[in-house]
């Protein structure tokens, strides 16, 4: 009996530790964004303080570029998600329903492509993108973000579409439905959980990505993480209050999104790791 109590106590401590580890940094940055300047730097750390929105006001007045970067991030995330979802769904459908040696062989290549580190392709793409004059546009990041998820996306969609009985598309085909109609009216509605799982991956990735944004954008298409990184690297010292406020604004939407979509994220992660 005492043993069991002790075990339960240890378990509670372990649960607390993992929750603090996961949530404390997020909690701290959000809470600190409402602290006045001198409260942020108080030693020992202040846990009770007069909340203020002064950093948010300063963010609005001194960093208009942050808000245009949020807009860029939104456009790029939406574009990359649409492109990746459409491309992965149509390809996943073919991989699920059609059989040929070429197709089976190309699955290996779909998986193999994921092994190439993203930084590798920046070397040739940087001069090419400059030469084409599409440097610093939404288009470049949309294409890059979508591309780095279509291989995983296709494999995921194949797994999800495999679970839809073939008899359904065959019945529709006998009724005279074309391939596109089958895809739109039969496959897409039934494969929605898969589509959402792919979309969750791309949305989180595109909203947060740093490397490609850092290399391929400079002013017009700058994304929010890039502007936040400039706040961190500011030469005349970091304005922590504004940095916390900007981080909170960038973080909260995607955090809430992950919280609400956690089921799809878990399904995608497990299917992606075991099947792809």
């Amino acid at each position: 009996m005492r043993n069991k109590r002790l075990l339960n106590l240890l378990k509670t401590i372990a649960v607390l530790a993992i929750v603090v580890w996961s949530l404390f940094p997020i909690f701290f940055i959000v809470v600190s964004s409402f602290k006045a300047g001198h409260d942020i730097f108080a030693v020992p750390t202040k846990w009770f303080f007069e909340p203020t929105v002064q950093h948010y006001q300063k963010l609005v007045s001194a960093w208009p570029v942050f808000f245009s970067s949020l807009w860029n991030s939104t456009v790029i995330t939406a574009g990359a998600t649409a492109l990746a979802v459409i491309a992965s769904t149509t390809a996943g459908y073919v991989y699920s329903r059609y059989n040929s040696r070429l197709l089976n062989a190309s699955i290996v290549y779909l998986i193999g492509v994921r092994l190439i580190p993203p930084i590798v392709v920046t070397l040739p793409l940087f001069p090419i993108v400059n030469w084409l004059g599409i440097n610093d546009t939404h288009f470049v990041l949309i294409v890059l973000y979508a591309t780095f998820f279509v291989s995983l996306g296709t494999v995921l969609m194949r797994t999800f579409i495999d679970q839809i009985p073939r008899e359904l598309d065959e019945a529709a085909a006998i009724d005279g439905a074309s391939r596109m109609t089958i895809l739109r009216k039969v496959i897409v509605p039934l494969a929605t959980p898969g589509i959402i799982a792919v979309a969750v991956f791309v949305i989180v990735f595109a909203w947060n990505e740093f490397l490609f944004a850092f290399i391929f954008t400079s002013t017009n298409a700058k994304t929010a993480p890039l502007v936040v990184s400039e706040m961190i690297g500011s030469i005349d010292g970091v304005d922590w209050g504004v940095l916390f406020a900007a981080s909170t604004v960038q973080l909260l939407p995607v955090l809430l999104f992950v919280v609400f979509m956690n089921r799809y994220l878990v399904a995608g992660l497990t299917a992606g790791a075991t099947k792809g």
């Binding site: 996961s22 949530l23 940094p25 997020i26 989180v204 909203w207 947060n208 990505e209 740093f210 993480p225 890039l226 936040v228 990184s229 961190i232 960038q250 973080l251 995607v254 955090l255 999104f257 992950v258 919280v259 994220l265």
Partner: peptide, 8 residues
């Protein structure tokens, strides 16, 4: 939760 957080 940390999955949602950007490296930056």
């Amino acid at each position: 939760a940390p999955y949602a957080v950007s490296e930056v």
